Simulated scan of single mutants.
Amino acid sequence: MSNVLITGGAGFIGSNLAHKLVANGDNVTIVDDLSMGKRKNIADIDVTFYEHDVCDHGFMHNLLSKGRFDYIYYLAAVASVADSVERPMATHQINQESVVDTLDYLRTQHLPLKRFLFTSSAAVYGNLPDFPKKESSHVQPLTPYAIDKYSSERYTIDYGQLYDMPTVAVRFFNVYGPRQNPESPYSGVLSIITDCLNSGKTFSLYGDGSQTRDFIYVDDVVNALLTIVDKAPEPDVYNVANGMETSLSEVIRTYEKIAHSQLKMEKKDSRNGDISKSRADVTKLQSLGFKPKWTLESGLKNYWSTYGE
């Protein structure tokens, strides 16, 4: 049995990860301020839960010292590009400062640790022409959110290399599936579409729908994280994606067929900082033995069948 800490563990990806770890017999502690996560996401599993802000460094230091965690999955973040543009300093404190403070406390206190995993984002790639996006591609963070994610992943990797700490970082592409919050203005595009199809609400389509994304089902993401934590040979960054490119218009057409319903849409101008094309090169992740199990269609079918549970 491993002792595991998940920051942001009541959120979408964090709660799915928590369910998997508990099922595997691990002892799981979650810190989440519930600004975007929901208590009900983890209500059916046995975890130690703290409703708290990761920016409270004293609280986090005390927890790290007492918890003696084997694994730390750092998912806590303000996962909204739009919010980071509106509140750059406030989101910076969560998306970067809290990460560096945690890493430095682990370093200075010489706390034993098997792996620290930081969750970054494909947003760091921006709109540069490198395609598909490799971990070695140039980056162009276009928003405070992307800047903080890139900086924090570099801190994570460099702390590992400079101080011999077992760290690793991942860049999530577009993750979707059960427990995704439709109130999220950025990461939850498929959850927003799902909610609109289910309720008959109007979906706001920013741009013409030609923008592409690399969608990956959350169950595959969780398995990728467990693979990376177990098998990554050194501090490094990994794309977590399917390696497939799909336009938003195509996703909507596929989902309408699955839901047997037509999505009501209102077209709006593209948002500042939005990315037009996105697809990951997942060669590095595959080298660890990971293979996704869910196609976009099968993932959407399962998401639709479980929506509202």
Rank of each mutant, 00 (worst) to 15 (best):
E234I: 02
D195A: 12
D32K: 02
V28N: 05
D274H: 00
R107S: 12
I13K: 07
N223C: 04
S276R: 15
A259Q: 10
R39L: 15
G11Q: 07
K277Y: 12
T295F: 08
D219N: 11
S120L: 02
E51S: 11
M165W: 00
G200S: 13
Q180T: 07
Y303N: 06
Y163T: 02
K149F: 09
P141V: 12
D281M: 03
N62T: 15
G308H: 07
F131T: 04
T143E: 08
K231R: 06
L5F: 00
D219L: 15
N41R: 08
T29Y: 06
E97A: 15
K301M: 08
D104N: 12
V175H: 02
Y176P: 04
V221A: 07
H19G: 02
Q180K: 11
A82K: 13
T108E: 02
K284M: 12
I30E: 00
V4N: 04
F118M: 04
S2F: 05
L162M: 01
D104K: 06
G160T: 05
T227K: 04
D208Q: 08
L117G: 03
P112D: 00
D164I: 11
E51C: 07
N62P: 06
Q262R: 05
M265W: 00
Q161W: 11
L248K: 01
L288C: 04
S261I: 04
Y217K: 06
S204Y: 09
N272S: 09
R68G: 12
L113N: 09
N127Q: 02
L34N: 00
D33E: 08
D46W: 14
N223P: 05
F59N: 04
H57W: 14
L63I: 13
D53M: 11
I157W: 09
L296E: 07
W304M: 07
E234T: 06
G308R: 02
N127H: 03
E266N: 15
M1F: 09
P182S: 01
V22Q: 09
